[in-house]
Computed example of a mutant assay.
Amino acid sequence: MSDSRHTKVLIIGSGPAGYTAGVYASRAMLSPILVQGMEPGGQLTTTTEVENWPGVNEIQGPELMVNMEAHAKAMGCEIIMDIITDLDLSKRPFTAKGDSGTTYTADAVILATGAKAKWLGLPTEEKFRGFGVSACATCDGFFYRGQEIVVVGGGNTAVEEALFLTNFASKVTLIHRRDELRAEKILIDRLTKNPKIETLWFHEIHEVYGTDSPLGVEGVKVKHTKTGEITDIPAKGVFIAIGHAPASELVKDQLELHNGGYVSVKPGSTETSIPGVFAAGDLTDHKYRQAITSAGMGCMAALDAERFLAEEH
C-alpha cells in the first residue's frame, strides 16, 4: 500500500544546505520533512579532513554531516531515508514521489540536491579518490605543501585551481587534451606568467599510480592524444577540474536553469521561477561550491519559505 504524507515544507537533499534548512524550518515551527536522497550527507561524506568549517579547526567530512543531521533532528526535523524519483511543481500542493512508494505533498519545497564533480572515469582515479585524487583545490590544496601536483582540465575551473595550488605546490602541471584553454583571457594570462605552472597540451591521464599501504599517489601516466605515446609525471596530488554537474534532473523541465543545469534563483534570495519552490546550495551555485555557502543558502531558503507561507495566511 502506498503511503501519503503532507508537510508544509519538503526539503529534498541532505548536504549542508538541506540540513541547515531543516534546522531553520523546524525552529520556525513548520514541521519540515527532509528526504535524504541517494547520498545522505552529500559530497562532504566523500572528503576526509575539513579545515574550513568555522569554529572547528579540523573535522572529518562524514562526522560533520552526522552532526548536522543530528542537529536538524534535535530541532524537530523529520528525516526520511528515501529517494525522490518524481517531482510535480505544476500545481500546489506540490507532489513528490519516493522510491519507497510514499507520495509526499507540500505547500513549499526546498531543493538542496547539490552537485557532483565530474570525474574521468578511470579505475585508478576511483582507487585513489580522497587519497591524492581530489576535485576540490580549496578543500585539499593545503595538504600538498612543497609537492608536485597535476591538474586536469582546460576551463576556468582548471585554471583557477592550478593558480590557487601554486600557493602550496612546488610545481603544478596542467594537463589538457587540446592545445588551447577555454578559460577567460585574464586567467590564461596569469597562468602563462606563473613560473610554477607548466602546461602539457594534447595529453590526457591514462592512469594514476601510487602506493597501497598507506594508500597514496606517486604519479600519473599521461597519453598523447595524437601519437598515443605514454609519459610518466611524478605527482603527489591529482586534481580533476573538468566541471561539476548539478543534480537538477528532477526539475530540469520545470524550473529556469542556467550555466549548464544550475537552478536559477532571484538575486539575493533562494526563490526559483516557481513561487513556493526554493533552491539552495551547490544546485544553484556554480561559483563558490563551499559547505559554508551552502549552509548559508539553506538558512535563507528556510526563511524564504517561512515568509512565503506566512504571506499566504
Rank of each mutant, 00 (worst) to 15 (best):
T225P: 11
T225Q: 02
K226W: 03
K226N: 12
T227I: 12
G228W: 02
G228H: 06
E229F: 00
E229A: 10
E229L: 04
D232N: 15
D232Y: 01
I233D: 03
I233N: 07
I233S: 00
I233F: 10
I233R: 14
P234S: 09
P234C: 04
P234R: 14
A235S: 12
V238A: 01
V238C: 04
F239I: 09
F239C: 03
F239P: 07
F239V: 00
I240T: 07
I240Q: 02
I242F: 02
I242S: 09
I242H: 08
H244G: 04
A245E: 15
A245D: 12
A245T: 15
P246D: 08
P246I: 11
S248M: 12
E249G: 04
L250K: 06
K252Q: 13
K252L: 10
K252R: 14
D253H: 14
D253M: 14
D253I: 08
Q254F: 01
L257S: 05
G260M: 10
G261P: 09
G261H: 01
G261V: 05
G261R: 06
Y262M: 02
Y262F: 15
Y262T: 10
Y262I: 05
Y262E: 02
V263S: 07
V265H: 00
V265S: 13
K266D: 12
K266C: 05
P267V: 06
P267L: 01
P267N: 09
P267S: 12
G268P: 01
G268L: 05
S269T: 15
S269Q: 09
S269M: 09
S269P: 13
T270L: 03
E271A: 12
E271W: 12
T272Q: 05
T272R: 06
T272G: 13
S273Q: 00
P275R: 04
P275C: 00
V277Y: 08
V277I: 10
A279H: 07
A280Q: 05
A280N: 09
G281V: 06
D282S: 13
D282I: 03
D282L: 07
L283S: 03
L283F: 03
L283Y: 04
T284S: 13
T284C: 10
H286P: 10
K287T: 13
K287V: 15
Y288S: 03
Y288G: 11
R289E: 09
